[in-house]
Amino acid sequence: MSTFLFAVVSGILFGVFFSLMAIGLNFAFGVMKIVNLAHGDFVMLGAFGAYYALSTFGINPFETMIMEIVVFLVVGVALYYGIIPRLLRSDDPEMLSLILFFGISQVIEALATLAFGTNPVTLPTNALGQLSFQLFGQAFESSWVISFLVSVVAIGLLYVYLYKTKMGIATRAIMANRDEAAASGIDVNRISAIAFGIALVLAAIAGTLTPFMLGGIYPSVGVNLTITSFSIIVIGSLGNPIGTVVGGLVYGLSLLLMQTYLSSWANMVPYVLLILILLIKPSGLLGKGARNA
């Protein structure tokens, strides 16, 4: 029983973290209808940022996170204005975005390999605190609980942004129909640029936490992170950021329960869930209803 409880609680902690990791990818797709195949690489860069800040300058991961929020927001906005308006003017922006961001992913991975080498690196898990948390008689690492809390706050702030601010409402209008939003006077490019910046910020925050949740990081880990993120958003609902939370929880719980009871099959979880969802409910668990809510 204790093993089951540990797996369930760990699954929830991991699930919320996975939601954070994937939500930026879904947010960018929801607003711009582009698939950022370099999303996992931005997560990887966030992780290496945390590693180098701590190992070289002794900077706490939380301070690094704040710096990365600023840097990734600027990079995201610049990247948007540099490439995305042109992409959206093309006949098939979704397809072209795949090719473009695949290229960006390869460039980031190659540059990261040159900069950081190929060896995996880790951060001491006590960098996020040394206390362990007790729940149901089980001890959970402080880094997991802190990553969970940071993820909840970040996802909550995204929710507040989308539903409680004028810019968020404008963002949702663009998500519903870009042309109609533009016709109603919304500065579609400005709002989309900020949305893309926020998507990268979410990736950076997840990246800062990644070494504590997923172990060693290395430049080519980005592809795996993109696949995981993609699976989660399809499970939840493609284009619906809030559905990602559901997708993340389903994924986290499934993965951790599989690791506990059928460990050799654990890594098949994302693919099996992906196939099942595509066969049974292609619009994802929250699908259309939640999107329009």
Binding site: F29, K33, V35, F102, Q106, I227, V234, R291
Partner: peptide, 27 residues
């Protein structure tokens, strides 16, 4: 709207498969 989701899903699935394939053939 649902067809839009389905199309996006299929595109993204194709993209990830493609990226895996291209990554494998990169050398």
């Amino acid at each position: 709207m649902q067809s839009r989701f389905r199309k996006g899903t299929l595109w993204a699935a194709a993209a990830l498969s493609g990226s895996m394939f291209l990554a494998g053939c990169g050398t």
